[in-house]
Design a protein around this nucleic acid. Structure first.
Lengths: 220, 220, 220, 220
DNA sequence: TATGAATGAGCATTCATTCAT
DNA sequence: CATGAATGAATGCTCATTCAT
């Protein structure tokens, strides 16, 4: 199958090691303070070898930034038939688990910290990350409105409300204060509360939906 | 009064120029890529003079970061007698106007970008900025609950919900994409919608409160 | 005959390609700025292969420099019977055509540019190039003096005068200003004038010889 | 007078040291192989200080190249009244002494060696050095033709002939073989011979002029 | 006190050269 | 044999910081 293996495989593995090392070093030091020496060392490569994989510091940075974009998008693969409360609940946790990962937070810090220096990067991140997730969520909201389950004027705003309710607070704190990730319990407090408030404001049958939500919460 | 002026005044003015220049240069380049030469030039000072005011690059950075914290706190000076919808409305815009200022966003980007490098800074920022504002808001929420106007279990969460609903979305986008501040209309869309959703979920008299809100919106 | 060909031939061809590429790259960039990568690429070889033919950059450079020396010497194959004016005329143009070739000029620039760094190279070049040509020319001058056609004290000086009169000027300019080779007409101006002046100073029958020269010039 | 001295003087002196060091190091190694470290060391400066005087290696190189151009031009300050043979004799030696200086030869080697890499440099050198000297010489030739002392068709060519006769040979050799400058006697052989040949070809009164020349030669 | 002029340490990048395949 | 992939050692250039004036 992959006949050209060995060499090719070796290259890919080293490339990956370089990208991982880059994430570590860049996020610990910021773009300018990160040195290619440090990245090479962290990747177990020599500097010239590192340069064989990436033409420049900037190129390595860009490549590293591209990696996790897609990951974020896998978040919203909702199986369409289930009850909307369950779907929101699943989405909430899928997203929370991606977004609150130390690596993801580190990346977000990098993007934000360098937004002024490289606006393209920030724009690209926004477009390919948050915007796409919100799009998916907005489509879901619109569908549920059509089905008469949610009472929604502006699906886009509803999607943003949902995200703002479940994750904005812990994520902001985590962005400011690294190494102080909320524990599971704290995170549940935010995420579950966010869903409750959302349903109170948007559900066409709040009492019933809230009951379903509490069941889901109790089960996990 | 302050007879020793002249010299003293001169010093203070230069110090201020240095701090302003620091904000400009740091936020345009990030900590590591900002040079003391550039800051000195922007302040109209020579480098050694700059060093007379601040012992090191780091010290200047820290000093610069301390400046605007207090500003943020003035945001929540609610006159206690007014109707709660009005108070929330006033708070919303007071906060929005501070938080969406280019300078404030630039600062936040710096804090976030350097959170890993200087965790103390991030922690201090969180404690003296967001946390204090949320404290004030939470106290207000608790009061309104006591007065029977809002139906609130956890005042702290309610405060965070409010903030998450009115500003998390535009602020996040603005953090990622500088030089693309939302115009007034866009900002209104978010802020007004956030208040509506909050009242739907939390008000003891949603219909009435929403009507008040719409009046407020219409008047401005 | 050369039964071991194939392999051997292949090797020789690659060696030649390497030498050609070396001339191109070295003369375009100078010794230090030329990279083995560039030479290998220009030769259509990989670097290790290149190293199989030449032990080092320096060795390749030296080998390349040896190649064209002999070429220069073919210049003075004067058929002894012809009239001296014709012989000088033939020599002039034979030499001019070799010496003003872009490749030759490029080589000369390399030798001169690296004379301090590798004095042996410069010495060898001088000995095997200019010196040998001048030797041949000086012998010719001595012969013509013996035959009573030229009035010569010091044949060596006469040879150098001849060369200085016909080519020093355009060659010096060409050395300083590459990509600005004199066109045929300009070159004729120098070369023909040089011969005229030489005959005026050295011929025992200037009027007659100059007439012959003009005929030669007119015929070509 | 120069009140701003001390500092200013110090700066100028250091700048000069840098330029001298540059000439030494560049001419010993060629442009690419010369390192800024070596130049700084040779100048007794640190690298950053060197960079304060010259923005880049290239800038330093260019500045260094500009220095001696003017020197070359002082060569042809002929006092107009003297006999033309004497004037030519003076010019010959003035020029010979400039052109055969080790420093001048080193510079010429640099220009030639880098002509392909920086054609502008070569062009500028040609224009401001050789071309201007030849211009002066050609004007002199034209004047002498007018005065009936020399028999000249093309003054420009005559000037080039003169230069080609007196100096092209020793200079070419010196360019190829550094550290082997001709001694005074050898140089006299070329320069004096060149003048003799020139007068034989160009003088309207060869016998008389040659006698004058021999007197001049005998006196020195 | 303010400044022009240093400096030591470092960083991104490149290159001649050599293995492992 | 030839190749892709390494690497150690430089090199040009910059910057935070400090003197001498």
């Amino acid at each position: 199958m992959t006949a050209l293996s060995r060499r090719e495989q070796n290259r890919l593995e080293k490339r990956q090691r370089a990208l991982d090392a880059a994430l570590t070093v860049f996020s610990e030091n910021g773009y300018a303070a990160a040195t290619m020496d440090a990245i090479a060392a962290a990747a177990g490569l020599t500097k010239p070898t590192l340069y064989q994989y990436f033409d420049s510091k900037e190129a390595l940075f860009q490549a590293m930034m591209l990696v996790p974009r897609d990951t974020m998008l896998t978040v919203f693969d909702a199986p369409a038939d289930t009850c909307h409360v369950t779907q929101l609940w699943r989405f909430s946790w899928a997203y929370a688990e991606v977004v609150m990962q130390p690596q993801f937070l580190a990346l977000a810090r990098l993007v934000i910290g360098d937004a002024q220096r490289s606006p393209d990067l920030g724009r690209a991140y926004q477009a390919s990350g948050p915007d796409r997730v919100l799009d998916g969520l907005a489509r879901f909201m619109a569908d549920q409105a059509t089905l008469g389950r949610l009472q929604i004027d502006d699906a886009e705003l509803a999607a943003e409300d949902f995200w703002g309710l479940i994750l904005s607070s812990p994520r902001n704190t985590a962005l400011h204060v690294p190494n102080a990730l909320p524990d599971r319990q704290t995170l549940e407090r935010y995420v579950n509360n966010g869903q409750r408030v959302f349903l109170r404001a948007y559900s066409t049958k709040p009492a019933k939906d809230l009951a379903v939500l509490e069941t889901l919460i109790a089960q996990n």
